[in-house]
């Protein structure tokens, strides 16, 4: 069973397209897209256990740290570049977004919305860094270097002249609701963007 956010993303991927998944994990999403969309699959990964799983799943996996750039990928060499739940853990998220849209014709990315009301409340009342199922870490051991909110990302897109093709906000179980649609930056837990230039 495909996670609901991946189900959503899948609908934005054209059949037979070339897809680069940055931080592809165990490769199961790429393997799924190969079956359902007949894509040409490539994944970047640095976790050795995940790389092994990718080999077992038969997806093309490249051991490469995306934080060191995507210079080896040609401009426009992919249709879609995916970055799922990693943006906030990169050294320069703005640069990777540029690179995604250089290498790919469009990009799909997801990140936890730091302005979710529970996070706001936790800061306001407890005065401590928020923790949640999406942000389970302590401030000192979190891999997340650059938290951002939906408003922040919208602003980044505006500054960089990036066109937002789709934007969806979902909850923990990857479902949307009327409240989230009404006030995404307050009620949305996870943001999913489909962007292009």
């Amino acid at each position: 069973m495909l996670r609901a956010d991946l189900q959503l993303i899948q609908d934005w991927i054209a059949p037979h397209s070339r897809v680069l998944d940055l931080g592809c994990g165990d490769g199961s999403f790429l393997a799924h897209l190969k079956t359902t969309r007949q894509i040409r699959d490539y994944g970047l990964e640095i976790d050795t256990a995940n790389i092994q799983l990718c080999l077992e799943a038969g997806v093309n996996v490249l051991e490469q740290n995306m934080d060191k750039g995507l210079k080896n990928f040609g401009t426009g060499s992919f249709d879609t570049v995916i970055l799922a739940h990693t943006l906030q853990a990169l050294h320069r998220p703005d640069e990777i977004v540029d690179e995604m849209l250089r290498v790919g014709k469009n990009g799909i990315l997801t990140f936890p919305n730091f302005a979710y009301w529970r996070h706001r409340l936790s800061l306001l009342t407890g005065g401590r860094m928020p923790k949640s199922p999406q942000l389970p870490y302590e401030w000192y051991d979190t891999p997340n270097l650059h938290h951002c909110t939906i408003s922040d990302f919208d602003e980044l897109c505006r500054l960089k002249n990036i066109k937002v093709l789709h934007r969806t906000v979902v909850d923990d179980s990857q479902h949307s609701s009327p409240l989230m649609r009404l006030c995404p930056n307050f009620f949305g837990i996870n943001a999913i963007y489909h962007i292009t230039r």
Binding site: R40, I51, C54, N60, V61, Q64, N72, S77
Partner: peptide
């Protein structure tokens, strides 16, 4: 690997 990517070949790299 980069040459193979540029040539749009299926490649895995470890």
């Amino acid at each position: 690997v980069d040459a193979l990517l540029q040539a749009k070949k299926d490649v895995s790299y470890l």
